[in-house]
Simulated scan of single mutants.
Amino acid sequence: MLGWVATFLVIALIAGILGFGGIAGASIEIAKVIFFIAVVLFLISAVVGLARGRTRV
């Protein structure tokens, strides 16, 4: 998922350099949304992992 964030950031940077403001703005917004979704999923995964604890075999 973070790969998608990097992709949209690169698209935004290239579009910004070339003067395509609308595409750059949309790409950066998409990158921000995907980044925050990734952070939320990571936090949920961390909390669930801590709640389950480690089982001894």
Rank of each mutant, 00 (worst) to 15 (best):
A26P: 01
L41S: 09
F35D: 05
F20V: 03
G16M: 07
A15L: 06
R52F: 11
I28N: 10
A51Q: 02
G16C: 03
L41R: 11
A51Y: 10
T55D: 01
V57Y: 10
A46S: 10
M1E: 04
V10L: 14
G49W: 04
A51F: 12
S45T: 09
F20K: 07
E29G: 14
G19T: 02
L2Q: 02
G49L: 09
V47K: 10
I11M: 08
F8H: 08
L9V: 13
L18N: 02
L41E: 13
K32D: 03
V39N: 02
G3T: 02
A38G: 11
S27T: 05
G53M: 03
V33I: 15
I23A: 13
L2D: 05
K32A: 15
V40G: 06
G19Y: 08
R56H: 02
A12Y: 06
L9D: 14
T7K: 11
V57C: 01
A12D: 05
M1Y: 06
V48G: 00
T7D: 04
R52E: 09
L43N: 06
I30A: 12
I37M: 12
A31D: 07
I37D: 05
I28C: 13
V47M: 14
I23G: 03
A12S: 15
K32V: 13
A46Y: 13
A15H: 04
E29P: 00
V40C: 04
R52W: 06
A24G: 14
T55R: 10
E29I: 15
I44C: 10
T55M: 06
I44N: 00
G25D: 10
I30P: 00
G19D: 08
G3N: 03
S45P: 00
A26W: 05
I34D: 01
F42T: 10
F35P: 00
G3R: 02
V10F: 05
